[in-house]
Simulated scan of single mutants.
Amino acid sequence: MVPGFVQLGLIALLFQLTIIGGFYGYLRYRHPVGDPSARWRVLKILAGGTCLLAIGQTAALGAVGSLRVTPLLSFEQALLVQDAGLVVTLVGYLVVFAGFVIHSRASVS
């Protein structure tokens, strides 16, 4: 059983992934990319970025949440894992942003 803030954080993570997927679907529908290789590159970049941000947020939530359930980590180690998860999440958001920029530059006008 995980603490409530971890469950709430996972729901927020699913909401964020839904927003990113919905925005990509909208862009793909309204501004399609003509070149299949560019479309595939954008899809890989967006998928990689969303995986990074999901892994980062899950690790950050799980590190602090594990202190309340089973103390596998010390408090300092949990904060270190949480900070590393935050960095991975920020890198994931930068990659997602880069994917949207590449999509907008490659789209057919």
Rank of each mutant, 00 (worst) to 15 (best):
G48I: 08
T58K: 02
S109D: 13
F100K: 00
A59N: 08
S107I: 02
V101N: 04
V6C: 05
M1Q: 13
V81Q: 04
Y24W: 15
L53S: 09
S37E: 11
A84L: 14
L61E: 10
S74L: 02
V33W: 00
V42F: 05
T70D: 10
V96E: 02
Y24I: 02
I45Y: 00
I55P: 06
F15G: 14
G25L: 14
L61A: 07
L79D: 00
G21F: 05
Y24A: 13
R30K: 14
S104R: 14
T70S: 14
F100M: 04
Y29G: 00
S74E: 11
A54Y: 09
I55R: 00
F75G: 04
A84D: 06
Q7V: 11
Q16C: 01
M1T: 08
T58C: 09
P3L: 00
T89N: 03
V87L: 11
D83N: 15
Y24Q: 12
L72R: 12
L61V: 09
V6I: 02
Y26H: 08
L27Y: 10
L72Y: 14
R39S: 08
I55H: 01
L90E: 06
D35A: 07
Q77A: 12
T70Y: 12
F75K: 11
V101G: 01
F23W: 15
L17I: 01
G9S: 03
I19D: 03
Q7R: 09
T70W: 14
G4E: 11
V64R: 14
V91G: 09
G34S: 13
S107Y: 10
A60I: 03
G9F: 05
G4H: 14
G62M: 15
G65R: 06
S37L: 12
V2C: 09
G92C: 09
A78S: 13
A78I: 04
R39E: 11
G92W: 09
S74I: 07
A63H: 11
